[in-house]
């Protein structure tokens, strides 16, 4: 059945309502491919969304959570759009980032305290001039998350928010939530929430252990 009401059509186009399994694929546009075929296939649009907040929940560092988004950063910086890292936990080793295709001239870092990090990330998302904004915020509350999501939609900017795995149970306004899970066989990626589609039950393999 084809919806005829314009308001209904726009709702469906923007994937704001969940349509249940078997419904027609949403026709939204992806920003760029995630670089993982399985993830592209599992998302409502084949790749990272055009804008909005993406949460990446990780139990520990070094599980491949950055390599998940490096292809996206490479695509965005190659398109001459600035990428801002807000309060990163460590310094990026630029040689590795360069090897992944990230253009350093478009990579900006902001090292600041927790309070100003939230403010800075919101400003950067809202300004609409960045290709992507990556934030490592310590325990942002509901209100902050909602502000960030609204800012990202207002500025039509893609925001990646890295948080601890313990915050998976906290409700979040982010349209896409991914959890990185460490298993003996390697690192898995589980889609906790994605707007416009049922999150698949199956986890996606992010990185296989070389020792198993």
């Amino acid at each position: 059945m084809k919806p005829t009401h314009p308001a209904l059509e726009s709702l469906l186009r923007e994937a704001r309502v969940w349509r249940g399994p078997g419904a027609a694929e949403s026709t939204g546009r992806a920003r760029c491919s995630t670089g993982l075929q399985a993830l592209d296939a599992a998302l409502p649009v084949p790749g990272w969304p055009e804008s909005g907040l993406v949460e990446v929940l990780t139990p520990a560092a070094g599980l491949g959570e950055l390599s998940l988004i490096l292809p996206a950063l490479a695509a965005i910086t190659t398109a001459e759009q600035p990428v801002l890292l807000v309060a990163p936990p460590h310094r990026p080793c630029v040689q590795a980032w360069q090897r992944a295709g990230v253009r350093l001239a478009q990579l900006h870092l902001l090292e600041t305290g927790a309070d100003s990090a939230c403010w800075a990330m919101e400003q950067a998302l809202r300004a609409g001039c960045c290709g992507a904004v990556l934030g490592w915020l310590t325990a942002p509350d509901d209100k902050t998350l909602r502000r960030l999501q609204v800012a990202a939609e207002h500025g039509r900017t893609l925001g990646f928010l890295f948080r601890g795995a313990s915050q998976a149970r906290q409700a979040s306004p982010a349209p896409l939530r991914l959890a990185v899970e460490a298993t003996p066989a390697g690192t898995l990626l589980r889609i906790l929430k994605c707007r416009g589609r049922n999150p698949p039950a199956q986890a996606i393999r992010l990185r296989a252990s070389l020792l198993h």
Binding site: L107, E111, T112, Q123, A127, G128, C129
Partner: peptide, 29 residues
């Protein structure tokens, strides 16, 4: 044309004015 419509240069100066002159930087090998 979206968001506040401000360019990266304007955002950069806004962040620096509020947070300090050396908090925002770039890295080179």
């Amino acid at each position: 044309a979206c968001g506040d419509g401000s360019s990266w240069e304007i955002l950069r100066e806004r962040l620096r004015a509020r947070l300090g002159e050396d908090v925002l930087f770039q890295l080179q090998p």
